[in-house]
Amino acid sequence: MGLLDDLKGKAQQVIGGNEQAIKDGIEKAGDFVDSKTGGKHADKIDAVQRGASDFVDKQNNRPTSDPVVEQPPVAGQPPVAGEPRQPGL
């Protein structure tokens, strides 16, 4: 077992049952850093907060957001930006 696997296992043990307290701590820490930087890096701080909260959720196999459901293209309409075009559409 590698060092990262060992750390992940320890993190899972600590997180178990304390998810909300940990997520509250993540939020408070991010808000503290944001206040100290005058909001200069708010977007980056928010991204780190989301990533850390998602990590906490994933440790208990909880979904972090609604599953993405892809809709098939409708004949006669152009594809949504970023989707490859299909022949005949």
Results as ranks from 00 to 15, higher is better:
residue 1 M to S: 06
residue 2 G to S: 15
residue 3 L to V: 12
residue 3 L to C: 10
residue 3 L to W: 14
residue 3 L to R: 14
residue 5 D to A: 14
residue 5 D to C: 08
residue 5 D to G: 10
residue 6 D to L: 14
residue 6 D to W: 09
residue 7 L to C: 11
residue 9 G to E: 07
residue 10 K to N: 08
residue 11 A to M: 11
residue 12 Q to F: 14
residue 13 Q to D: 15
residue 15 I to S: 11
residue 15 I to M: 03
residue 16 G to S: 11
residue 16 G to Y: 14
residue 17 G to D: 11
residue 17 G to F: 11
residue 18 N to F: 15
residue 19 E to S: 14
residue 20 Q to W: 08
residue 20 Q to T: 05
residue 20 Q to G: 04
residue 21 A to E: 09
residue 24 D to I: 01
residue 24 D to K: 07
residue 24 D to G: 03
residue 24 D to F: 07
residue 24 D to N: 15
residue 24 D to V: 00
residue 25 G to N: 04
residue 26 I to P: 02
residue 26 I to M: 02
residue 26 I to K: 02
residue 27 E to N: 13
residue 27 E to C: 09
residue 27 E to W: 09
residue 29 A to L: 10
residue 29 A to K: 13
residue 29 A to H: 07
residue 29 A to F: 14
residue 32 F to L: 04
residue 32 F to P: 00
residue 32 F to E: 11
residue 33 V to K: 10
residue 33 V to M: 01
residue 33 V to W: 13
residue 34 D to N: 12
residue 36 K to R: 04
residue 36 K to S: 08
residue 36 K to Q: 08
residue 37 T to G: 10
residue 37 T to D: 07
residue 38 G to M: 01
residue 39 G to A: 00
residue 39 G to P: 12
residue 39 G to L: 08
residue 39 G to D: 03
residue 40 K to F: 14
residue 40 K to D: 09
residue 40 K to G: 07
residue 41 H to S: 10
residue 41 H to C: 09
residue 42 A to R: 04
residue 43 D to E: 10
residue 43 D to K: 10
residue 44 K to R: 07
residue 46 D to Q: 10
residue 47 A to I: 00
residue 47 A to D: 12
residue 47 A to K: 11
residue 47 A to Q: 09
residue 47 A to N: 11
residue 48 V to T: 07
residue 48 V to S: 04
residue 50 R to D: 14
residue 51 G to R: 05
residue 54 D to H: 09
residue 54 D to G: 09
residue 55 F to M: 12
residue 55 F to T: 03
residue 56 V to F: 13
residue 56 V to D: 03
residue 58 K to Y: 06
residue 58 K to T: 05
residue 59 Q to H: 09
residue 59 Q to R: 11
residue 60 N to M: 00
residue 60 N to W: 02
residue 60 N to R: 06
residue 61 N to I: 01
residue 62 R to T: 06
residue 62 R to E: 10
residue 63 P to G: 04
residue 63 P to W: 00
residue 64 T to E: 08
residue 64 T to Q: 06
residue 65 S to W: 01
residue 66 D to I: 02
residue 66 D to W: 06
residue 67 P to M: 01
residue 68 V to M: 13
residue 68 V to Y: 04
residue 68 V to H: 00
residue 69 V to S: 01
residue 70 E to R: 02
residue 70 E to W: 00
residue 70 E to N: 04
residue 71 Q to A: 06
residue 72 P to T: 02
residue 72 P to A: 01
residue 73 P to H: 02
residue 73 P to T: 00
residue 73 P to M: 00
residue 74 V to W: 00
residue 74 V to L: 03
residue 75 A to C: 02
residue 76 G to N: 12
residue 76 G to E: 02
residue 76 G to T: 11
residue 76 G to K: 09
residue 77 Q to A: 10
residue 78 P to L: 02
residue 78 P to H: 01
residue 79 P to G: 04
residue 80 V to G: 02
residue 81 A to L: 12
residue 81 A to Q: 15
residue 81 A to H: 07
residue 81 A to V: 08
residue 81 A to D: 15
residue 82 G to R: 04
residue 82 G to T: 00
residue 82 G to H: 04
residue 83 E to C: 05
residue 83 E to T: 05
residue 83 E to M: 06
residue 84 P to W: 03
residue 84 P to S: 01
residue 86 Q to G: 01
residue 86 Q to I: 08
residue 88 G to D: 11
residue 88 G to K: 06
residue 89 L to S: 07
